[in-house]
Write a protein that binds this DNA or RNA. Sequence first.
DNA 1: AATCTAATTTGATATATATCAAATTAGATT
DNA 2: AATCTAATTTGATATATATCAAATTAGATT
Lengths: 184, 184
Amino acid sequence: MSEELVAFFKALADPSRLKIVGLLARQPYSVEELAALIGLKPSTVSHHLAKLAEVGLVYARTDSYYNVYQLNKETLDEKARRIFTDVDLGTSIADVDLSAYDQKVVADYTRRDGSLKTIPAQKKKLEAVLRYVVEGFEKGKRYSEKRVNEILKGYHEDTATLRRELVGFGLMQREGGGGEYWRV
Amino acid sequence: MSEELVAFFKALADPSRLKIVGLLARQPYSVEELAALIGLKPSTVSHHLAKLAEVGLVYARTDSYYNVYQLNKETLDEKARRIFTDVDLGTSIADVDLSAYDQKVVADYTRRDGSLKTIPAQKKKLEAVLRYVVEGFEKGKRYSEKRVNEILKGYHEDTATLRRELVGFGLMQREGGGGEYWRV
DNA sequence: AATCTAATTTGATATATATCAAATTAGATT
DNA sequence: AATCTAATTTGATATATATCAAATTAGATT
């Protein structure tokens, strides 16, 4: 699907082909005529027409010796409408792993045992690491501050910073008085 | 103008850049994040973003260490709307000489003195040559058949064929009875 | 001021492709 | 059947460009 989109843009991403499309928008032409009009050899024009035909932008009608090409306006209009919708933009990232950045950061900052080498100073990386750390807590369960520190100790010595940042980034919450924590 | 169109299509005619656009359609990202998400090095992503920025599809906001890029949806929508109109298709052929094919055919079939080597057998070429021959007649003036033949003789011996084809292609007309001809 | 860090630029390389000439093909026309 | 003719295919070449590594830059942060 994304391939189809790329092919469509590639088909139009060339000055000669754009001229051909512009000419065919006015009237059909044979290969020979197009070649004379845009100043290229027929073999080159044939190559361009093949690319345009591949994505359905043009098609040929045979007339005696000539292959008379015409523009497929339906394809052009349809693509123009569809291509820029959110849905279609979505298709271009169908095979993108949206957690790849987090994974990379976590891999950079953890040892084999899963503990942190350091706590990242950069906000974006800190957030990625915290999203990883918070997985050490079960959803819907309440933890005492003492228990929280025991769990965080498995990730890094500086449990106070981890605790504070987890709350600061809204990944955990604490009850005002008693000192109970839970994962959000 | 056509250059701008080509640049726009070229900007989108690449799988990596299409993924970047798809990701930025959802939310802004830094170069580093995009690189991790689509599996390329930051320098490569930087190169792609530069191309997208050139055509106004993305722009960057600086945030501490990061250059956070976002999609310019206005540009995307505007181009999508404008690009496929007849007007814009017209711009792609602004520098195309629409008489180039006729010129080439006439050059192929005439001697230096302007006379025809042969009368083309192919319809399209014959038509181009006839459009050239008919220029030997003044618009709005009436000619006797004898005078028509004298003029055609300057182009080719076979004046009967030329005369018949000129009328056949609608380039000249003849009055039913008297045998007077005029250029259409 | 010194140091860090993400981004960009530069240089190198491999791949894609626009173009043409020459050869081939497909389909009329004679 | 033989011949013509436009179109296509094949092969060669030059140019464009996607990608990465290394160097540099710009802008925080310490």
